[in-house]
Write a protein that binds this DNA or RNA. Sequence first.
DNA 1: TGAAATGTTGGGGCG
DNA 2: ACGCCCCAACATTTC
Length: 470
Amino acid sequence: MSTAIVWFRRDLRLVDNAALSEAVANATHVIPVFIHAPEEEAPWQPGAASNWWLHHSLAALDRQLSAVGTPLIVRAGDSVAELECLIAETGADAVYWSRLYEPAIIERDQRVRAALAARAIATHDFNAALLFEPGEISSKSGAPYKVFTPFWRAALHQLQLQAPRPAPGKIDGVAGLDSLPLEELKLLPDIPWDKGLHAAWRPGEESALAQLQKFVDSCVGQYQEDRNRPDLRGTSRLSPHLHFGEISPRQVAWVAQQAAAESAAIDQGVEVFLSEIGWREFAHHLLVHFPYTVDRPLREGFNRFPWRTGDGEDFAAWCKGQTGIPLIDAGMRELWHTGWMHNRVRMVVASFLTKNQLISWQAGARWFWDTLVDADLASNTLGWQWTAGCGADAAPFFRIFNPVRQGEKFDADETYIRRWCPELKNVPHGAGHAPWTADGTLAEPIVDLALSRKVALEAFRQLKEPPPDK
DNA sequence: TGAAATGTTGGGGCG
DNA sequence: ACGCCCCAACATTTC
């Protein structure tokens, strides 16, 4: 007789979950537990949109677990204390979990490992969130890659996809354990601003698997072109499911690769899609090797860039989607209402904030952190530093998106902007992306795109010069 | 996974 | 018919 605890964190699934499967295989009784301890993730505790998702994902996980024999035990408090408490209650002798890669969580998990070891409790942790453990991919010199393309080439070379593990058929739990009602975690908003989230998403493993299947069956073949179109549903929309571990990148890659093997027509789309999984891998690789990048630029020189702070009126206008530029405003409103924004538009709004407004990427990253249902420290950090030009494989400083041009290119018939910007109703078609140029019209944007571009180029050019003597 | 400025080409209008 | 010019379309360079 032995009892094992499976400590769920962000691996909220039954399929392809090594920690769960191994615990079930090695112990006679298994206790699945979630411990709510957001302060242990400080200063990056989940934002409001993430909390909304987490609540519903935990509810879904509880249903899934209950269906195979035992409910999810929910606790709140210090992770070490709660685990020790559960061990005392049940006589468990092992704890299983899936690794995470945020700096604060790595440090916390180390403390947990030490505390449990001191009580002779075995700990077993697994990679369940990534195709490659960070550190597994490095260049010939042994240095971590800082450029995506060689990183991903090396990774693909090493990739040996195995079929995902099936979910355990039956779990023998331990009866009579206290569990907090989910509501007591206070993850849901007090005022009901989450209508748009409900309309757009269904958290949970079942939904994640269905979404993957739907995407692979009907979209991945056109992914190469359609992924850039915010007016279409051409992307997988798996990011929040992946973030919370409702599905693993191995499952995603496996299903996509199987489909490509059956149909040469979608081959190209699958390759591009997998490279997006690659960016997610690359982001985690960078986060582990350069953890300081969550709030400081990877490129040293950018420490002296004179960013404006995010406490002014114009930052608020960006957040609320009130800049007067339709593509920017549409994206920011989509984010606010659905907790998500199309990736093409993310790049455009980020470029606008950091280059046209010259506001720090950290301010933008914080806003995304609080509003995205897929907020992920690794991906968010990489994305913002890439756009600002201060990170790995960064966009060169002169690459400044023009939101009008981007709109004309990727939302040519103005479907996307008109979906989110009702004020465009009387603007003639063809002028929607720059409504201030049409007759009868809406106000000028809060910044002059051409002028601010020139100012930014000058500011970034100065950065390349040696710092003034002091 | 840029945009704007600058350079080049070639069709067609026109005297 | 021919040369000239205009300018759209495309290509290259620059930031």
